[in-house]
């Protein structure tokens, strides 16, 4: 019903190539997340899928139909924006109704759709208010409601949580996850936040510099990153990258170890260094080591540990948790 297929999508703004050939298939009902650093072309790709921007080259198919010449309103999509983009002069109800009204839906269909969406998002009390009278979190729920009301085959989200504060972000994230479980529509979601990507996605698409670096489930990306970029982008704190020669690892250009994949001891280990900073977070302890052999290392230990800055510590990567990269940054398995 709501499958999506991108073939050879390219986009240039003047002389700048923003997207350099994107191929991707999204199955019906799948939750796919585009992640990547700011400015890598995520929003542009989403706007091309929505029909808000023309691709310089390539095909967009929604539900098996080439939509390259179809205007946004007729693509069976709905979109939620970072800035909410509610119509300031309309009430919450009219904001939600506008799309259906424009499509010529019957009055009672509109009413029942709004009722369904506002019940799902607990917006009933606010239907008569204007956007200016709502908090940020409420506005984003209205924006999501406006998308649901249209009953689209494909939901597009462009960093919907970025303008919310931390607590609201978690709540709204859970709400979007629940929404996907309940309505089972295909969702394409853009974020630069890897935690959102890891927690929501069926599959993650890692974009960088206008190309797809890797596509896979969150755990595939975590456990089998295709290259150094993905290895560094997924996981927090970031993976440690060491020069192979200094780390004493033959047959590759660099090696990587995730902070959580170190065992730390005072007595001995593969690399040693002085703790320059220790963060005690209760659930975790994060150590920043300065090692003469390999440079700066970050290690993350579970639970509380009595290390303090100035301690000399030894770290050893856990068995099978050392990633090896060739000179081009590709992972060697």
């Amino acid at each position: 019903m709501g499958s999506l297929k991108l073939t050879g999508i390219r986009k240039s703004f003047g002389a700048v190539d923003v997207l350099k050939g994107i191929d991707l298939e999204v199955a019906d009902g799948e939750f796919v997340i585009f992640v990547g650093p700011s400015g890598c072309g995520k929003s542009t790709l989403l706007r091309i899928i929505a029909g808000l921007e023309d691709a310089s080259d390539g095909r967009v198919e929604i539900d098996g139909r080439d939509v390259s010449a179809v205007p946004p309103a007729k693509r069976g999509i709905a979109m939620v924006f970072q800035t909410y983009a509610l119509y300031p002069h309309l009430t919450v109800r009219d904001n939600m109704a506008l799309g259906l009204k424009q499509a010529g839906a019957a009055k009672d269909t509109i009413a029942s759709q709004i009722e369904m969406a506002s019940a799902m998002l607990s917006l009933e009390e606010y239907l008569q208010r204007r956007p200016a009278e709502l908090s940020g979190g409420q506005r984003q729920r209205v924006a999501i409601g406006r998308a649901i009301v249209r009953d689209p085959e494909l939901f597009l989200f462009d960093e919907p949580l970025s303008n919310l504060d931390a607590a609201l972000r978690v709540n709204t994230r859970l709400e979007i996850a629940r929404l996907h479980r309940e309505i089972r529509s295909t969702m394409v979601y853009v974020t630069h936040d890897q935690v959102e990507a890891m927690t929501l996605a069926d599959r993650i698409v890692v974009l960088n510099g206008g190309i797809i670096e890797q596509v896979g489930s969150p755990m595939e990306l975590y456990n089998k990153p295709a290259n150094r970029f993905v290895a560094g982008f997924i996981g927090s704190p970031q993976m440690n990258f060491l020069e192979a020669e200094r780390a004493g690892e033959p047959g590759c250009a660099s090696v990587g170890v995730r902070p959580e994949h170190f065992s730390v001891s005072r007595d001995g280990g593969r690399w040693s260094g002085e703790a320059v900073h220790v963060e005690h977070l209760g659930a975790d302890t994060i150590l920043y080591l300065d090692s003469k052999e390999v440079g700066t290392l970050t290690a993350r230990l579970f639970g509380e540990h009595a290390f303090t800055a100035g301690d000399t510590l030894h770290v050893t990567p856990l068995e099978g948790q050392l990633y090896r990269f060739d000179a081009d940054g590709r992972t060697l398995f």
Binding site: R47, A50, G51, L52, P71, P72, A73, K74, I77, A78, M79, F81, Q82, T83, Y84, A85, L86, Y87, P88, H89, L98, G99, Q102, A103, R146, R150, D158
Partner: peptide, 27 residues
């Protein structure tokens, strides 16, 4: 004027005239 607002209007099926007169002009 917010690019997203105009995009939302286009997705909701507003014509370019409606976007101009109803969304952009009031702002």
């Amino acid at each position: 004027v917010s690019k997203d607002l105009k995009a939302a209007g286009r997705i909701d099926g507003l014509s370019e005239y409606a976007i101009f007169f109803r969304l952009v002009l009031p702002l």
